[in-house]
Design a protein around this nucleic acid. Structure first.
Length: 1143
RNA sequence: GCCGGGGUGGCGGAAUUGGUAGACGCGGUAGCCUUAGAAGCUAUUAGGGGUAACCCUGUGGAGGUUCAAGUCCUCUCCCCGGCACCA
């Protein structure tokens, strides 16, 4: 028998497989399919190291296994060759990227070829082929057409070394993920994809994917959904408002004019006009409310004289009520006077109204043919349908609406009777109050907001410039912040900084309190609304800021802990109690007094505590409780805790649940001698103990007391839910309920916010897909006609980045200058290219139909092969490739290009292989192991088995050339065993071996399915070790074993397979099945325990009955030794496993 | 800080999901074979005690539940990965 010569065997079979075309994808539609996919590599110049193939070996094993189990298998490979790595390599080595890529691909393919993969190379794709990127461009165009690709001018991440803009996903902290350079913010026109539109769906569909939990978490985190509310805070200025607008109110004709008029002031106090005048004047608006002549019988001619004397100009807002409104319309129509706004309040009366005075509106506007020079018209129609009749009201409203549209083209209608006391729309129009819109996830804490913070960049700051008294200081701070990088701004543990905007205040809409406004860099401009309400009592960051700036901290949530030892019982009445808890310190020893409770509360340890009696202050309650429970007097209260806490528990002696609100104190006593006698009753309830400070937390038993103790030591904010306090009518409400209630109360909006930002999609580099857009002066950004795709990446003399923010493509005028596809005029091509992630966002679809030039992918084929059944790759793609690809896929689903909502059904992480020194394999460290060398020395099969055997597949491990001999020895054994095959003997003689074979088939099958390759191989080794002991090995057993081995070591398996007389490739044979009855052991090692300790192990039939087992124990000498002379209390029997005797 | 995954011999790692802890492999030790080495083969290899039969201890640490805990619960320490002033 010849030696195991791996070189010869591997070379021979690799050639035969290629020539025989065994790995060509089969597509019989009646068979189930299995799409097994690797994350395709970018072909770097360094070639493969030994870590790269690990994932490819796994997919190879898996797909071979599936193939032999009757599946049509799709297992393709391709190249992700656009992007910075290839381009930088090309620049460094002074070759054109396309040449470099070609060369690198060739080298990669050679290296992969030596390992013996079953890839179907007929479906190979390359993202840099025009036939491929035609479709990448096509997808972009579809997105553009759906409004998902847009141009934007925002500060983006600019890497000064790579000289290109980067998406958020391309950063590691504040550094470029590629080169480690700190990125800058740079304003730049860029293409952006609206990935945020898909945030919710990507989040939702994550649930059903068979993906590692860690990746799902990362994606959830990255998408960062949080639900909260947007709430508006009005800004009040202490300076008089310098608004240019003046308001003139023209009252109507009160139904009872003479009676209602205050004859002394000659105004109508009971009407809304003086009220609104007050509000507006308080807000700094100049208001006139002229008294019109003959209020009880108004006449237009009289009004006209008054109008002419008023200061009505283009900044004027006119408010007319009833006939006042009608006269104004007529007057404006007649004079053509320009005004800013006309607000008509209930200018009603139908045209048949016999009162000619109020009919003016109809005469001169609805029925007349006039033009008004008014910027904005607002009409409040009456909703008092009873008064004017339903039909009339509707008719009137419809006509009025039509008329105003005709007059101005816009204007809006609010159906509201003016007798009510709220008309915010009206006031908004006039006052134009600046507002801070904040985003919060905790609207329940609104009453605890004690200041507001804007991001320094917030545009409201500019708007308020005139009102801010310390503008110099504000500007200085903004400059400082602008200079910092994101990381410097957000570094943890950094002292909070900020500047108050003096002269302006925010109004808390919940309680109308005036709050100071700050700008501070702890508030980020790009998240939420760029503004927050600060609730220092319940938010860590606000708390720190408030402490530093000495701002008010106001508790509005009482945290509540249900006592786990004594939880509230369902169905019992809940009684609220005000209580005190005090932690008393002995000033001399530093120890604290705690109570160990007795009776029904046995086992409970607390601080000194008790209820506050009627008429007592809480301080008095503290002193009296200490005296009653400990007898100690002369106590000084040293601190009242800022926070009120609470607990719910069951007071079983009173048959009630209690909600105890606890005021907490620290107290100290200097001389414990001055004691009074503790009553017997108190003594029977508890014992006082003194303990060290660091023991207190461990000893306290009720959860909320532990919590309080922690709060005492931290003196910090309270996060979490609870009941509301200091919150007006919401006091006592649970925070969860209050979130909605308070948001509604202040007219806020429930709102969902995401951390995910839109995808910055343009790169200012050469080596990428050209963005298929033409810019035309007339038509703007125009898509290239689909029939003109692909837009070929032109040859260029210098492909190095320009650094000016323009791609090298911008320099090729003959390429840039083209015709606008829309108008035929002069147009310029978009010169930015797509990022590296573009081509990889959909490549898995092209494998399905790689040669199709008509469509992206044939839908029928896609329906058969999609989704990818198993996708194998590194965890580093969690928040880039895997988010982008899901986004594109969902988009393609929406436009009907694909059949399924998700691209990758199951995802498996491949753990990295580090170098022997534990570091990453890298040229830099000189610790790279080249697979070519391993294949040369040990063989591809050994490499494959070793990499699968190293450890759990998803875990990273260090390479060890020493350990590789194990798998090699294993294959040698397999090889040598061939000598002992008895090909006459078809049956396995040895029953045990047959059972082991079936067990092995089962285990290996299950383990490959679940990617536990290491244990599958270990089981194969066990089988081989046992087969080795046999003098003769049956052909059946050996054949089945070879099939089990073949996914891992295809070359040696194929060679031995043919040596035992098979003509067809082992790849085409059927995976063996196992007999369930043979998987179970016939005899088992049955464990005999005494008191839970193993005392003996005996070989018995696996179906031993409980009675036999018990007998067995009594007969067992070793067990008897432990049982003798003792009573058997209990015997536990576990079927097929053990018997345990308790004595 | 938050989220996720871990911690088992000298090393990589198994453990039927609560039932013999250390499978399989590397390494080590002793022996066989050999002129010698390599390879191979045999035995042994968690730690401690004992001539031995055998006994005790043991899965980062401390408690707990259970007849029985690497596995479940509570607290705690350490390592790896992700996110990080996200309101």
């Amino acid at each position: 028998m010849k030696e195991y010569n791996h070189k010869e065997i591997e070379k021979k079979w690799q050639k035969k497989w290629k020539e025989g075309g065994v790995y060509k994808t089969t597509e019989q539609k009646d068979k189930p399919k299995c799409y097994v996919l690797d994350m395709f590599p970018y072909p770097s110049g360094e070639g493969l190291h030994v870590g790269h193939p690990k994932g490819y070996i796994a997919t190879d094993v898996y797909s071979r296994f599936k193939k032999m189990n009757g599946f049509n298998v799709l297992h393709p490979m391709g190249w992700d060759a656009f992007g910075l790595p290839a381009e930088n390599y090309a620049i460094k080595n002074k070759v054109h990227p396309s040449l470099a890529v070609k060369k690198n691909i060739k080298r990669f393919k050679e290296q992969l070829g030596k390992i013996g993969f079953n890839y179907d190379w007929e479906r190979e794709i390359n993202t840099t082929n025009p036939e491929y990127y035609k479709w990448t461009q096509w997808i972009f165009l579809q997105m553009f057409k759906k409004g998902l690709a847009y141009e934007s001018n925002e500060p983006i991440n600019w890497c000064p070394k790579c000289k290109t803009g980067l998406a958020n996903e391309d950063l590691e902290g504040d550094k470029c993920e590629r080169c480690g350079t700190v990125v800058e913010k740079k304003m730049m026109r860029q293409w952006v994809l609206k990935i945020t539109d898909y945030a919710d769906r990507m989040l939702e569909d994550l649930e059903n994917l068979n993906w590692p939990e860690s990746i799902k978490e990362s994606q959830k985190n990255w998408i960062g959904k949080s639900e909260g509310a947007e709430i508006e805070f009005k800004v009040k200025s202490s300076k008089t408002n310098d608004k240019k607008n003046n308001v003139i109110i023209i009252h109507g004709c009160p139904s009872n004019a003479e009676k209602e008029m205050d004859h002394r002031t000659r105004t109508y106090d009971k009407h809304w006009q003086p009220w609104i005048k007050n509000i507006l004047e308080e807000a700094g608006v100049k208001v006139e409310l002229p008294l019109m002549p003959h209020p009880w019988a108004p006449k237009y001619e009289e009004h006209k004289k008054v109008f002419e004397k008023l200061d009505i100009n283009e900044n004027t807002i006119l408010i007319g009520h009833s006939c006042g409104a009608s006269f104004l319309v007529r007057w404006l129509g007649e004079t053509g006077k320009k005004v800013k706004s006309l607000i008509m309040v209930a200018p009603w009366k139908d045209e048949n109204d016999e009162n000619p005075i109020c009919g003016e509106f109809y005469t001169y506007s609805v029925n007349g043919n006039i033009k008004l020079q008014v910027e904005n018209i607002i009409v409040f129609t009456s909703d008092n349908e009873e008064e004017i009749g339903k039909d009339t009201a509707k008719l009137f409203k419809d006509r009025l609406e039509a008329k105003v549209k005709e007059l101005k083209g816009h204007g809006h209608f609010v159906q509201r009777h003016m007798g009510t006391d709220k008309f915010p729309e009206l006031l908004e129009e006039i006052i134009q109050t600046p507002k801070i819109t904040v985003f919060t996830t905790r609207p329940d804490t609104l009453f605890g907001a004690t200041y507001c913070v804007l991001a320094p960049e917030h545009e409201l700051v500019d708007e308020l410039k005139g009102q801010i008294e310390n503008w110099d200081e504000v500007e200085k701070y903004r400059d400082e912040v602008a200079k910092k990088t994101e990381i410097e701004r957000t570094a943890e543990g950094k002292e909070k900084t900020g500047v108050e905007l003096k002269g302006v205040k925010a109004i808390n809409p919940a309680n109308n309190e005036e709050l100071p406004i700050f700008i501070a860099d702890y508030v980020l401009a790009h998240y939420g609304t760029g503004a927050i309400m600060a609730v220092p009592a319940h938010d860590e960051r606000d708390f720190e800021f408030a402490k530093k700036f000495g701002l008010e901290i106001k508790q509005v949530i009482i945290p509540c802990a249900d006592d786990s030892k004594n939880p509230p019982q369902n169905g019992l009445e809940e009684v609220e109690r005000e209580t005190v808890i005090v932690y008393l310190k002995d000033a001399e020893t530093g120890k604290y007094a705690l109570l160990n409770w007795h009776g029904t509360l046995e086992g409970i340890t607390t601080g000194i505590m008790g209820g506050i009696e009627n008429g007592q202050t809480s301080e008095e309650a503290v002193l009296s409780e200490i005296e009653e429970e400990s007898g100690i007097t002369g106590v000084t209260i040293t601190k009242k805790l800022n926070w009120i806490t609470s607990a719910r528990y069951c007071a079983s002696h009173k048959n009630q649940n209690r909600y105890a609100i606890a005021h907490t104190y620290l107290a100290e006593v200097k001389n414990i001698k001055s004691q009074v006698e503790v009553s017997d009753k108190e003594k029977s309830l508890h014992t006082l103990v003194w303990v060290d400070e660091n023991e207190v937390s461990d000893l306290l038993t009720p959860d909320h007391q532990k919590f309080i103790w922690k709060q005492i030591q931290k003196t910090t904010y309270l996060d979490g839910d609870g009941r509301l306090v200091n919150s007006g009518k919401f006091d006592g409400m649970d925070s969860e309920e209050a979130k909605k209630a308070i948001t509604e109360f202040v007219g806020g909006q429930m709102k969902t916010t995401y951390k995910l930002r839109d995808w910055v999609f343009s790169r200012q580099r050469y080596w990428g897909e050209p963005i298929p857009i033409i810019h035309c002066e007339k038509c703007g950004a125009v898509p290239v006609f689909e029939k003109n795709l692909p837009v070929i990446l032109p040859e260029v003399e210098s492909y190095e980045p320009t650094g000016t923010g323009e791609s090298p493509l911008a320099g090729i005028s003959e390429w840039v200058n083209t015709k606008c596809p829309k108008c035929g005029g002069a147009g310029k091509r978009e010169t930015n290219t797509m990022p590296q992630w573009a081509g990889s966002s959909w490549y898995y679809l092209k494998y399905i139909d790689s040669k199709n030039d008509e469509v992206l992918v044939d839908k029928e084929k896609e329906k058969y092969w999609s989704p990818v059944d198993v996708y194998v790759g590194g965890a580093e793609h969690a928040t880039r490739h895997l988010i982008y690809a899901r986004f594109w896929h969902k988009f393609l689903y929406d436009i009907g290009a694909v059949n399924y909502k998700e691209p990758f059904e199951r995802l498996q992480h491949v753990g990295l292989i580090n170098a022997e020194d534990g570091r990453k394999m890298s040229k830099r460290w000189g610790n790279v192991v080249n697979p070519d060398d391993i294949v040369e020395t040990f063989g591809a099969d050994t490499l494959r088995v070793y990499e699968m055997f190293m450890g759990p597949f998803s875990q990273s491990v260090s390479w060890s050339t020493d350990s590789i001999v194990g798998p090699r020895r294993f294959l040698e054994k397999v090889w040598k065993m061939h000598e002992r095959i008895n090909d006459q003997e078809l049956k396995i003689k040895n029953d045990d071996l047959e059972r082991l074979l079936h067990k092995t088939i089962k285990k290996v099958s299950e383990d490959i399915e679940s990617f536990n390759f290491n244990t599958a191989i270990s089981q194969l080794m066990i089988l081989v070790n046992n087969m080795e002991k046999e003098a003769e090995i049956s052909l059946v057993c050996y054949s089945k074993f070879l099939i089990l081995l073949s996914p891992f070591a295809p070359h040696i398996a194929e060679e031995l397979w043919s040596m035992i007389g098979n003509k067809e490739s082992i790849y085409l044979s059927l995976w063996p099945s196992y007999d369930e009855s043979l998987v179970k052991e016939e005899k088992i090692n049955f464990v005999i325990q005494v008191n839970g300790k193993v005392r003996d192990v005996v070989l018995v039939n696996s179906d031993i009955s409980e009675e036999d087992a018990k007998k067995l124990v009594l007969e067992n000498k070793k067990a008897q030794k432990w049982i003798e002379g003792k009573d058997i209390k209990k015997t536990i029997f576990v079927e097929g496993r053990l018997v345990n005797v308790i004595v």
